[in-house]
């Protein structure tokens, strides 16, 4: 707990430093930042997934080296998921920020973190596949990784229209 707590503080501090200052009222400040930090984390994963996907579709000029970098960034993000969603940040909507995290995320927190670990491992596999520069291997590993996202979202995210 001590280490993850510390990590959370660092990640949060970074998020606070990077985020817009306007959000923080004294009481809500940390809560808002926590939700915002984890939403930004998901957005950054989404951005890398999109980049990988466009490479596989031939829609951007990314190389296998870029794919490896993106996969490593996703693995790094995956390592932060458990921390940013720690039970003490079990936060529903705060201020004008809506969260789509389901309450089950915290009641089944262990399962949730095991799914985050699955993403970390699958993105690690993808980084390895990228090193081979074999497009078919990259595509397969990318598919396996994407499915870990889907499985977790299905269980713990409220889908908005």
């Amino acid at each position: 707990m001590g280490v993850t707590k510390h990590l959370a503080a660092v990640v949060l501090a970074a998020a606070v430093a990077a985020g817009p200052a306007s959000l923080a009222t004294a009481a809500d400040g940390e809560a808002v930042q926590a939700v915002k930090a984890r939403q930004d984390l998901m957005k950054s994963i989404g951005g890398n997934v999109k980049g990988l996907r466009e490479m596989l579709q031939g829609k951007n000029t990314d190389t296998a080296a870029d794919a490896q970098r993106r996969a490593e960034e996703i693995a790094e993000s995956a390592r932060q998921i458990a921390v940013l969603f720690e039970p003490e940040y079990h936060i529903s909507n705060v201020g004008d920020i809506e969260t789509t995290a389901k309450p089950e995320l915290w009641t089944d927190y262990e399962d949730f973190t095991s799914k985050a670990t699955a993403l970390e491992e699958a993105s690690g596999e993808l980084a390895l596949a990228a090193q081979t520069e074999d497009m078919n291997a990259i595509k397969t590993a990318f598919g396996d990784m994407s499915k870990t996202c889907g499985g977790c979202h299905q269980a713990y995210r409220v889908k908005k229209d």
């Binding site: 997934v49 999109k50 990318f142 598919g143 994407s146 499915k147 996202c149 889907g150 299905q154 889908k159």
Partner: peptide, 24 residues
């Protein structure tokens, strides 16, 4: 085909609700 094989939407998000079950 990216949706049917991996559950991915064009914007980098994953598909949800009962459609995820159709794919997975």
């Amino acid at each position: 085909t990216f949706l049917l094989s991996m559950g991915l939407l064009p914007d980098g998000d994953v598909v949800g609700s009962t459609m995820w079950e159709v794919v997975s």
